[in-house]
Design a protein around this nucleic acid. Structure first.
Length: 602
RNA sequence: GCCGACAUAGCUCAGUUGGCUAGAGCAGCUGAUUUGUAAUCAGCAGGCCCGGGGUUCAAAUCCUCGUGUCGGCACCA
């Protein structure tokens, strides 16, 4: 195999450029390494542009970069292009690739480039963004494109690719600008790599919580109910209830008090908190008589009112309130996505009111709490500290102090984190927890936010040692984020095969024949006593059929009972994963279920 | 919100260029069968073809306005 580019001072330089400038460096071959794929995919984007230009001669091109998942090219044409046209474009790409055009590079001045692409207003926009005097042009066959490179030496090297998606995208990523057409694609150096990528995509599709939620009867959405308002079905209700009760215990153990604020509060309060000004466009408002009310998009104001209900001493702090708080937010229609983005959801929300000297220990305590839960569900996670956003309340000084408090708490305990500049909430900086699921996708769930602003705005206080009035610090935190989103993630993480302790149904009982139904019922009652849900498959179907039906529900355990089991007071257990069978006495069986349900404590 | 696609039975989907009574599988119901570890057989029932308006002798099919869904973009406390 020969080189396709070289590595020069950590940059990837293509052969065309290396030759022109006489550069030498470590050779990059065409394999599935990060560097090689970068070059390959960039060239594949150009090949796609070449195909598009030949099929749609009026096409104008903006930019065509590589991204994490392949590449894309943004362009504009008067023709309407749909999903169905991707095959046609792929075919054209292959026929160009077969011609094995070399990719040539030359440099011209920006003015010459402006003249060359004078009919292409998108290329003019690209030229506007380039500060350099000279620009490089890459040419393959008749097709020429303004580009920085790097590229393959020849388009004949492009063989294993696939165009995956077509969509709209704003010019420059700004919703005020015109909308272009964007086509996404993926390319690899080998056939096997492309195949395993496609397999992984198929696996993700199989796990899609919207599909599984429908199949497993966890939740549903209905047009007549409204977009973004989930309906929880019995199986989903059972799963959610298990999660809620485990988490309730975990909060009590850590000194949190359950409280509850009203669903809507007078707008004056939202003005005091700053939500009215900073978050109003995402809130729902209504009137009661002459007064305006805002439906809560967050639970903090309610918890502040709980705090204000009595005087607090420095001895009482920290005070921790928690609530499974139902919130409503006006998400844009295009943002809605299954349970991941909805307009009504329930947060596992809590607010900690503490003294300034308690911030660090409280942050660390929450981080531990997060760790306990995420490791129970076998999620890897990382933490990110988000700093002051453009739209924010409070002085720079307060922001600085609170941001540093978060960083130093993490530093002192040697916890790793990344920084997200400008990603904070409008009232304070935060630590976000990003989890990685079973097939490597990242999700943002929990958040820990430090807030000096709301206590100031609501003039919160406690009595200090000198009987002076001191302002407490507020820590907002959610660990799952929302039950909706988290259950959606869990569904995809486990591919619907929930572990015993949260599964909607713990056991499926399959009696061999009519005469064994009574024994099945007896088992089912005993299971209820140990807080396990079961379902009896006694329909007038063959035994095989009923086992198949039970398997398809993804229940963690199936037991079959017949004459033998009744005689010996046993059950025949069928393991979900191995499909193997073994016998357990009734006591052993019940003990096993009980252990599996109770072994988990957050 | 923006670009594009889509919406037919509880679910998954057929339904030709506008043309007869809109079909299938699964699920459901009834009956026969009483089963030992992934689909027993037979029968029945099930539809405002997403909603409103229009074109046409005739609309599930064409046009239009909504609603919802999907893929992205933008948004995301």
């Amino acid at each position: 195999m020969s080189a396709i580019a070289i590595k020069y001072n950590d940059d990837i330089v293509d052969l065309q450029t290396a030759q022109e400038l006489g550069l030498k460096g470590e050779e990059i071959e065409l394999d599935n390494s990060k560097e090689a794929l970068e070059v390959l995919r960039h060239s594949t984007a150009h090949l796609m542009a070449q195909a598009i230009k030949s099929l749609y001669p009026d096409a104008e091109f903006y930019v065509g970069p590589t991204v994490n998942e392949g590449f894309y090219y943004d362009f504009k044409t008067s023709a309407e292009i749909g999903q169905g046209d991707l095959k046609k474009i792929e075919k054209q790409m292959l026929s160009f690739a077969k011609k094995k055009y070399p990719i040539e590079r030359y440099v011209i001045s920006k003015d010459e480039a402006r003249e060359k692409f004078k009919d292409d207003h998108l290329k003019q926009a690209v030229l506007d963004m380039i500060p350099d005097e000279d620009v490089s042009i890459y040419k393959q066959g008749e097709f020429e494109d303004l580009c920085r490179g790097p590229h393959l030496p020849n388009i004949g090297l492009i063989r294993y690719f696939k165009l995956t998606k077509i969509s709209g995208a704003y010019l420059g990523g700004d919703s005020k600008n015109e909308m272009l057409t964007r086509i996404y694609g993926i390319a690899f150096a080998t056939k096997d790599a492309l195949k395993s990528y496609m397999d992984m995509m198929a696996e993700a599709e199989k796990r899609d919580h919207r599909k599984l939620g429908n199949e497993m009867k966890l939740f549903t959405f209905r047009e007549e109910v409204g977009a973004g308002f989930p309906i929880w079905l019995p199986a989903g209700g059972r799963l959610r209830a298990r999660l809620e009760s485990l988490l309730f215990k975990a909060h009590r153990k850590r000194g949190y008090e359950p409280v509850r604020g009203p669903e809507m509060l007078r707008s004056d309060l939202w003005k005091t908190s700053g939500h009215y000004q900073n978050y109003g466009e995402n809130m729902y408002f209504t009137h009661i008589d002459e007064l305006e009310f805002g439906v809560k998009p967050m639970n903090c104001v309610g918890h502040i009112k709980v705090y204000e209900d009595e005087l607090h001493s420095y001895r009482d702090l920290p005070i921790k309130y928690f609530e499974y708080g139902v919130v409503h937010r006006h998400e844009l229609t295009g943002a809605l996505h299954g349970l991941f983005r909805v307009r009504e959801f329930t947060q596992d929300d809590a607010h900690i009111f503490c003294r300034a000297d308690q911030i660090e220990e409280q942050i660390i305590e929450v981080v531990d709490f997060v760790d306990k839960i995420m490791s129970t569900f076998e999620f890897d996670y990382k933490m990110m500290i988000s700093t002051r956003p453009d739209k924010a309340v409070g002085s720079d000084e307060v922001w600085e102090i609170s941001t540093n408090a978060l960083k130093s708490a993490m530093d002192k305990h040697q916890l790793a984190y990344e920084i997200d500049e400008g990603g904070g909430a409008f009232y304070g900086p935060k630590i976000d927890i990003k989890i990685t699921d079973a097939i490597g996708r990242e999700w943002q769930c929990g958040t820990i936010q430090l807030d000096f602003n709301l206590p100031e705005r609501f003039k919160l206080e406690y009595n200090g040692e000198e009987n002076d009035k001191i302002q407490p610090v507020m820590i907002h935190r959610a660990i799952l984020g929302s039950f909706e989103r988290f259950i959606g993630i869990l569904t995809e993480h486990y591919a619907g095969e929930f572990p015993m302790f949260i599964a909607p149904t713990q056991v499926a009982i399959v009696p061999v024949a009519e005469s064994h139904k009574e024994y099945a019922k007896e088992l089912s009652d005993k299971l209820i006593d140990i807080n396990a849900d079961s379902e009896i498959y006694a329909k007038n179907d063959s035994l095989n059929k009923r086992i198949r039906t039970a398997e398809k529900t993804r229940v963690p355990m199936i037991v079959v009972v017949g004459d033998e089991e009744i005689a010996n007071k046993t059950v025949a257990v069928r393991d979900r994963r191995t499909r193997e069978q073994y016998n357990l006495s009734q006591e052993e069986f019940l003990k096993l279920i009980q252990t599996k349900i109770n072994e988990v404590n957050f």
